[in-house]
Design a protein around this nucleic acid. Sequence first.
RNA 1: GCGCGGUUAGCUCAGUUGGUAGAGCAACCCGUUUACACCGGGAAGGUCGUAGGUUCGAGUCCUACACCGCGCACCA
Length: 732
Amino acid sequence: MDEKLLKPYDPKTTEEKIYKLWEESGFFNPDICIEKGITKPDAEPFSIVLPPPNVTGNLHTGHALMLVIQDIMIRHARMQGKNTLWLPGTDHAAIATQSKVEKLLEKEGIRKNDLGREEFLKRVEKFAQDSHDTIVNQCKKMGASLDWSREAFTLDEKRNLAVRTAFKKMYDDGLIYRGHRIVNWDPKGQTVISDDETIYEEKKGKFYTFKYGPFEIATARPETKFGDKYVVMHPEDKRYKDWQHGQKITLEWINGPIEATIIKDEVIDMEFGTGVMTITPWHSHEDFALAEKYKLDKEQIIDKYGKLLPIAQEFAGMKINEAREKIVDKLKSKGLLISVDENYVNRVATAERTGGMIEPQIMLQWFIDVNKKIPSRNNLPTRQAGKSLKELMLEPVNDEKIKILPSHFEKVYFNWINNLRDWCISRQIWYGHRIPVWYKGDQIYCDINPPKEDGWTQDEDTLDTWFSSGLWTFSTLGWPEKTKDLQKYHPTNILETGHDILFFWIARMILMSQYLLEEIPFKTVYLHGMIRTADGKKMSKSLGDKAIDPLDIIVKYGNDALRLAMIIGNTPGNDLKLNENDIRGYGKFANKIWNASRFVLEQTKDLDINNLPELDEEDKTSKEELDNLIKEVSKEMNEFRYSIVAEKLYHYFWHTFADIIIERSKKKILENKNTESAKTILYTQLTTLLKALHPFMPFVTEEIWSLVPTSNKQLLMVEPWPLSIDKDNIND
RNA sequence: GCGCGGUUAGCUCAGUUGGUAGAGCAACCCGUUUACACCGGGAAGGUCGUAGGUUCGAGUCCUACACCGCGCACCA
């Protein structure tokens, strides 16, 4: 009897040792599994790429959840004898990382422009490297069986080649274009961001109604109104039936008389306010669309620092917040202010990463055209020609080549794509993939490599971080090279992530893979819910100490306990309230397994495991019961019903194996009646349960396994799953 | 406004082809005979949000509504 079994299970001393054992075995790497005869060379491949955590700091509970679910999938597949790859990596996360470093520098009183691009990037890279090291270390603490030999970074050289290759191809196909379009400008971050990176916040503010010639118009933003010379109303609105579309009127406005043109359009909501509005095409998406429709003039009012331009005359150079009341005062003095609603609730767009208030602007930026038909080219497969990127994104989900779990997210996905506008991919930040475009006078050059002649300057901008993330399933496998990995492991089997990045990431991966590889990036999308605190709050950083740190939990209760708490009662798409009490309970379960194993090992010391004795009748029944359970859970594992499986195994181990079979066997052994059968059932059930529990509780099961006598000792992580997929038909 | 999800035992949640309601935790009673008190045994606890409908039969399917949460759009 091993002495450590005499004490309660101690995850702290066990887990680090076990992970080392796994890592040293090399079995996280599928090539080594084949080499060592664990996996058959022609075994079915099974691959998952890890959603790369941002190199902005530590892992949080959301990361822990994804690591747990994916590790269960991977360990199960590996035990099933599949050629199993789980590929790790981290994300440079462009804006998120840059703004984090900027904030840190700010504390030292340093601005990024003081350092210059090169020096600043060095600082960011140092920060990213440190974060990376922390993250890798944390992944290991989580027990993640990732193949570290294949680790990737979204901004390393190989991925940069993939990005340049992708950009060039899209540019040549006319799917990437540069143009003046209205974009979301973040004055705080001094960069453009995509529609998906804006967050709307409700803000209470003032809502002013002004006299505008013969009309009354309302606005929450008087400071944008200088250039308003179009007044819009609904064509059906009887109140304004005497006014004609295109009619011009002269009226007194902020800085004197102006000429305004009447526009009639259905976008107007007759019920809202007076049913009349003026438009500011340069600083509003909707107004821009209207101006495009009627070919109206567009004038810039606010510069990129949020200050008023000369068009504002006496207000020029003022910050918009400062100017607002002054402009209202002026209009009031001219008798043009009608009323002020002090309790108006406005929804303000803010930047996800910097919190800056978005100021829409018309700017020269790079875009991906999602509606343009892909041109037919010699080297382009006919499948894509004539289809738009939108269609390429819709197709595989429509055809169920890609299945989204839970399926109701498919509707959300379709809805997003149908409303999708061109994707703005250029960013005015330094940290990221530089746009592979060079300029010389009026000439533009786009290629994978810079032009050879002198005199060309590269575009200053970098790419949206999601551009490189979109390539993740295949850039990690070596694309654009035609590697063996790419051939073997792509499309990947499952993409497991939070439903909050369905649009940001999943849609973009489908787009890129469909376009560049003509194949889907993954077969199944498994979306987990958000982790919440016990009282239902979002587990965000702003919670500070109240947020649960997964690593603290591991130290306290062990990784296996945290895993079960994250799996049991958690179904795809639903949020999970993580509760320390539950984790404590599952820690007890780990100890229960430990203690039961002690008993079994003690009692079966003299059992000849290569020649197991016959079972008596009641033990035969127990054997059948467990066989059936394993059959059931094997099927459920393939259906991703991990919550059910974990619960069933937990329940069987505790309340059937421990409470009934062990107690019964105790009596038999004590009374010396059917002793051999008792020992056999104890041994066989324990070994079977350890295997079945291993994907869920890898540490405690592996540790016990090392003490179990077996005929051909190898790590539990590569033991065959207790139900062979060859033998039994469990697939439906 | 459009769409999605939730509403099941005190709490947290499972419940996949419709067939007399489940788990964990908490609470209650009993019990420490050597795997484990980080334990065992026992009992208790729900008209499955509301109102209709389909059906021999509905937590499960359909319709409407209520409340909670989320997403998208608009907010001049």
